[in-house]
């Protein structure tokens, strides 16, 4: 039997067009919430279009009409069965005050692993420089770090040195932000190598950090080192670690330790945390770039080292409080009504 397609389409077309209009309205504003009547109408029209598609597929399957209906049913299916939780408008404050710190704590194991690799790299780099100072060019591929630390400190503490960043501080801040954000995103993206790339990346960054630190400490420039690195490093290094944490969460989803959940399901569950951590790292690096350019580059006597170190310590304390305590439910929450 072949259905009378002309009459069939003429009869059903108003419903399809109405469904099309509702779906277009929703497409124009993804955060729009439908009223109960609209939800009922959407569901009814979708069910009807589904039934029409079933009839067309069974009987006279004219390809154009079928494609049109398939497209309509596909869009309707996405609306009706889609993830409602993400349809809400973005709430930056809620994300900052709750979502990011909660996600960080939920994925703390990945953070600890990233920290362990960074520290292992730092220990290796520090020991290498301590045992063989000639290895500096290999360990620190940055020309401005290869010289004698004491000589650099002397040059940067000269009164005339304070103005060396004049007229290019904002540019330098922009360069730092974009470069460091790309580094953090790379630490995340390397999670796709089942985490191996992320771990090597963190170890290598640790090697550089450890080598620089030991080089300055051995030269008796510990105060300069702390005053130079702490104000921005206390945010920048954790930010890179958060990027690596996201990469290790990605790797964890790929490896799937329990093995019961299929890969697609594991990725779907991990994706919001990965994105949250990546955006958090980016935000931290905007702050770190600003501080590094506008504050870290000034040394004593322009800004006393004690002030710089105190500023870094205050930032570190605030960051620790943020990630450990911010967004926690108050004691007794959730017990009401029990």
């Amino acid at each position: 039997m072949i259905v009378n397609l002309e009459k069939f389409i003429a009869r059903e077309r108003p419903g399809w067009e109405r469904l099309d209009r509702i779906l277009r309205r929703l497409a124009a504003d993804p955060a729009r919430t439908l009223a109960l009547d609209e939800v009922r109408e959407l569901e009814r029209l979708y069910q009807r279009a589904s039934a029409d598609l079933a009839r067309l597929a069974t009987f006279a399957a004219e390809p154009e009409a079928r494609h049109y209906l398939e497209n309509l049913v596909g869009r309707g299916y996405a609306e009706i069965h889609g993830a409602q939780a993400e349809r809400r408008r973005l709430r930056p404050w809620e994300w900052l005050a709750r979502t990011l710190p909660q996600t960080f704590r939920r994925r703390a194991a990945a953070w600890r692993l990233a920290v362990a690799l960074l520290l292992a790299g730092a220990a290796f780099g520090g020991m290498a420089v301590a045992l063989d100072p000639a290895a500096k060019p290999v360990l620190m591929p940055f020309s401005h770090l290869l010289g004698d630390p004491a000589q650099r400190v002397a040059e940067e503490e000269r009164p005339t040195a304070a103005g060396r960043m004049d007229g290019r501080k904002a540019t330098f801040a922009g360069q730092l932000m974009t470069h460091n954000i790309q580094v953090a995103f790379m630490a995340l993206a390397l999670g796709f190598t089942w985490g191996v790339g992320t771990l090597i990346f963190m170890f290598y960054n640790g090697v550089i950090l450890g080598a620089v630190a030991v080089d300055y400490i051995m030269a008796g420039q510990t105060q300069f080192l702390l005053g130079w690195l702490l104000p921005h490093g206390v945010i920048e290094i954790p930010a890179i670690l958060v990027g690596a944490q996201a990469g290790l969460v990605l790797a964890g989803a790929l490896l799937g330790r329990d093995g019961r959940e299929p890969l697609a399901g594991r990725m779907r569950a991990a994706a919001p945390d990965i994105v949250t951590l990546a955006l958090g790292a980016a935000l931290m690096l905007v702050w770190a770039g600003t501080i590094e350019s506008f504050f870290s580059q000034y040394h004593a006597p322009v800004i006393p080292y004690a002030a710089k170190i105190a500023f870094g310590a205050a930032e570190g304390t605030a960051l620790t409080w943020y990630f450990i305590l911010c967004g926690r439910k108050p004691r007794g929450a959730g017990k009401a009504g029990t």
Partner: peptide, 11 residues
């Protein structure tokens, strides 16, 4: 075939 989420787009 579900709704494309903001998380998916960013990731």
């Amino acid at each position: 075939g579900l709704q494309l989420t903001f998380t998916q787009v960013v990731l």
